[in-house]
Computed example of a mutant assay.
Amino acid sequence: MQLKLKNVLVIFTILSTLVAAITAIMTYANLQPTQSFLNSWLNSYIFALVVMLPTSGLIFIVMNKLVELLFSTLTNIQQKLLHGVFMAVVMESVMAIVTTVVNHEYVTFAQYSRLMFSSFLYALPIGLGFSCLMVFVIRPKLQRFLAQPTTNNL
């Protein structure tokens, strides 16, 4: 298997694990006793993998440009930390909204807000950790991977 394909598979595995962990935590945080965890989690996971993962890639790029533009006086490490925190808060907010909507169809706004905020708080520490992993480890590897010249071994 080519090195580039291996790298893509490794990155995809890491990102899908991140999505699985966060959706599992959020699903567990606002699961009702009558709901099946596996079905609820699977619905949230599939949506997150198909819709949120590509969207988060775009948000990641835009957020990076905004941090570089608005906080150019900060050091590189400070910018990366700020980028990681912003990404975690934005993505966890969106995921909390989506997970709560998927798992709770008929609730009042007050119940929905409580469930959404609860799932956000449960998953935020994991999101912060993964976001920093993304900014400090995965992104540099991805940049090096994309910068390498392509070689055809056919």
Rank of each mutant, 00 (worst) to 15 (best):
L18S: 09
V10W: 09
A48C: 13
A88S: 14
A20G: 10
V101M: 10
P54Y: 14
A29R: 03
S72F: 14
K6R: 10
K141R: 05
T34R: 01
A29Y: 03
V107F: 07
E92Y: 03
M26T: 08
F86W: 13
I97G: 02
V89C: 10
K4P: 02
I11P: 00
T75D: 14
L142I: 13
I25S: 05
F145R: 00
T17P: 00
Q143A: 13
L31Q: 12
T17M: 14
K65L: 12
T55G: 08
V94M: 13
H104D: 06
Y112A: 13
F109D: 08
L82V: 11
H104P: 04
V50W: 04
Y122P: 00
A88H: 02
A21K: 00
F130S: 05
L31R: 08
Q111A: 12
N76M: 14
K6L: 15
S131N: 01
L66M: 11
I59H: 02
F136M: 09
S44C: 15
F145E: 13
S119A: 03
A24E: 08
G84N: 06
M1I: 12
V10R: 05
I77A: 08
V8K: 01
V135D: 03
L58V: 14
F130R: 00
F145S: 10
F130W: 11
A110N: 06
L142N: 06
A110D: 10
L49Q: 11
T34A: 07
V67M: 09
N7C: 07
L15N: 13
S131E: 02
K4T: 05
Q143V: 15
F60Y: 11
K141E: 14
M91E: 12
M87C: 03
T17H: 04
V8I: 14
F71K: 00
V62R: 01
V67I: 15
L42S: 07
T75R: 06
E92H: 02
F145D: 11
A110W: 07
L124Q: 06
L58F: 14
W41Y: 12
P33G: 09
N152G: 01
L70N: 02
A88N: 04
I77D: 12
F60L: 08
V102R: 00
Q111M: 13
P149A: 14
T34M: 01
L31Y: 05
F136A: 06
L31F: 08
S40A: 10
P125T: 12
V67L: 09
C132L: 15
M116S: 11
Q111Y: 04
M116A: 13
N76H: 12
A29H: 02
L82C: 09
R114G: 07
L42F: 11
I97C: 08
I126Y: 09
L66Y: 07
G129F: 08
K141W: 15
R114A: 13
A147V: 04
V135T: 07
S131F: 05
V135I: 10
F71E: 03
T151P: 01
T100A: 11
I14E: 11
L146V: 02
I59Y: 07
N103M: 09
I77K: 00
K4R: 12
V107Y: 05
N64D: 15
N153Y: 14
A123V: 03
F37T: 06
